[in-house]
């Protein structure tokens, strides 16, 4: 939810008109795209909740306006049958079916199609018993600056917020990457042409061999180093 003392944040620029948070239309739009609980056989659902309580989907000025900011949250519920549990159930059922067929005098093989149907039935049954994994990610809107702060750096969550916020308010969100923010900062100045023509600068300055040699004769207290394949 809305964690402020410790958070991770990506900034987006809101492109398009937004209703004022003090107008009923703002809360109504959020309510239209509110979180709705999972139906019995649904695997995933998402929608807006209040920033203070992920069970509350009633929005008004008091619940969303925080000084100059507007706060709410994206809730995502997802349930997934654990693959090992599904496999175990499937094996038991296959065993029982084979045995039953054998008792009848004709040991049967289960076709691929039958197996698929069995898997789907078991999944549906197990989904009813599987509690959802619940996530909620704070969203802060600064209407004056037209900036949206999303308190997550997960690619899936960010894409979900972009899509849902866009659908809710019929606007677009553009991530404030260094390039996009730079465009805004230098807009209308001579530097704009330089930004459009920008080329990479090598800020290193020595050969790899020299770098390796310098690294090898590291002195003193060395930091923990980790090489990671990307």
């Amino acid at each position: 939810m809305l964690r402020l003392r410790s958070q991770s944040v990506r900034r987006f620029r809101v492109l398009g008109p937004l209703p004022s948070p003090y107008e009923p239309a703002f809360a109504e739009r959020l309510h239209e795209r509110r979180f709705r609980p999972l139906a019995p056989h649904e695997e995933r659902t998402y929608g807006w909740v209040t920033a203070d309580n992920l069970l509350v989907t009633r929005f008004d000025v008091d619940t969303v306006v925080r000084g100059e900011m507007v706060a709410f949250a994206l809730r995502i519920d997802q349930r997934r049958v654990p693959p090992r549990l599904l496999k175990a159930h499937l094996e038991l059922e296959l065993e029982a079916r084979t045995k039953a067929a054998g008792d009848g005098g004709r040991p049967g093989r289960v076709s691929r199609e039958e197996r698929k149907t069995m898997r789907e039935e078991i999944t549906r049954r197990l989904l009813l018993e599987t509690p959802p994994h619940v996530q909620a990610h704070g969203v802060l809107l600064d209407p004056r600056r037209r900036v949206l702060y999303v308190q997550s750096l997960s690619r899936r969550v960010l894409e979900q917020v972009q899509l849902l916020f866009g659908d809710t308010f019929e606007v677009a969100l553009e991530a404030l990457t260094p390039w996009r923010r730079a465009q805004e900062i230098v807009a209308g100045t001579d530097a704009m042409a330089a930004l459009e023509d920008i080329r990479r600068t090598e800020l290193g300055g020595a050969s790899e061999a020299l770098a390796a040699a310098l690294g090898a004769r590291s002195l003193g207290r060395a930091p923990a180093t980790e090489e990671v394949s990307s």
Partner: peptide, 19 residues
């Protein structure tokens, strides 16, 4: 990735930049 021990002042950090 350099962690702990003031990596910004370390020879490893400069070596990574030089490379």
């Amino acid at each position: 990735v350099l962690r702990a021990g003031v990596p910004s002042a370390s020879s490893e950090a400069r070596a990574a930049l030089r490379s």
